[in-house]
Simulated scan of single mutants.
Amino acid sequence: MDLTRDLTIEDLGGGAVIEKLNYELKRVVANCADINMDATKVREVILKVQIKPNEQRTQAMVAIITDAKLAPLIPYPAHIFITEDED
């Protein structure tokens, strides 16, 4: 008899997965809109779900990890003087 329970992504952490994904998505969209960032770089939203069952396999600890890979700042060219003028 199959005693496993049907789970959905919405069930994990009482909805925390969706909340964490939304947070990272907002970061990515803000990064895309920032004129100081490279417009053509690919951004990523990352979701990792780690599940560690107990020995009886009746429960499991779940770690929900989210992250975002954002575009870096566009380099700003500037000049510096290395030597002083000789008078």
Rank of each mutant, 00 (worst) to 15 (best):
M1K: 09
D2N: 05
L3G: 08
T4I: 03
T4Q: 14
T4P: 09
T4K: 10
T4N: 12
D6V: 10
T8Y: 10
I9H: 05
I9P: 04
E10R: 09
E10N: 13
D11G: 06
L12C: 08
L12E: 10
G13C: 02
G13T: 03
G13R: 04
G13V: 08
G13Q: 02
G14T: 11
G14E: 10
G15R: 14
A16W: 01
A16P: 08
A16Y: 06
A16I: 06
V17R: 03
V17N: 09
V17H: 06
V17T: 11
I18Y: 06
I18N: 12
I18K: 15
I18C: 10
E19L: 04
K20F: 03
L21I: 08
L21R: 09
Y23F: 11
Y23H: 11
E24P: 14
E24M: 15
E24S: 10
L25P: 06
L25E: 00
K26P: 00
R27Y: 06
V28R: 06
A30S: 07
N31K: 01
N31A: 11
C32D: 10
C32T: 00
C32N: 11
C32V: 01
A33N: 14
A33D: 14
A33I: 09
A33V: 02
A33F: 07
D34W: 07
D34A: 02
I35Y: 10
N36M: 04
N36S: 12
M37Y: 06
D38R: 08
D38M: 08
A39W: 04
T40G: 06
T40L: 03
V42M: 10
R43N: 01
E44F: 08
E44C: 09
V45K: 02
I46R: 11
I46S: 07
L47N: 04
L47M: 11
L47W: 01
L47H: 13
K48M: 02
K48T: 14
V49Q: 06
Q50C: 05
Q50M: 09
Q50H: 08
I51S: 13
K52S: 14
K52E: 15
K52D: 15
P53I: 06
N54T: 08
N54C: 03
Q56F: 05
Q56N: 14
R57G: 04
T58F: 00
T58Q: 04
T58M: 03
T58G: 01
Q59I: 00
A60T: 05
V62E: 08
V62Q: 05
V62W: 05
V62H: 06
I64S: 02
I64V: 15
I64N: 00
I65A: 04
T66R: 08
D67H: 01
A68I: 05
A68Q: 01
A68M: 03
K69D: 07
L70E: 07
L70D: 02
P72W: 00
L73W: 10
L73H: 06
I74Q: 13
P75S: 12
P75E: 13
P75V: 12
Y76A: 12
A78H: 12
A78G: 09
H79T: 12
H79M: 15
I80N: 14
F81M: 05
F81H: 15
I82K: 12
I82E: 15
I82V: 14
T83Y: 07
T83Q: 13
E86H: 05
D87M: 09
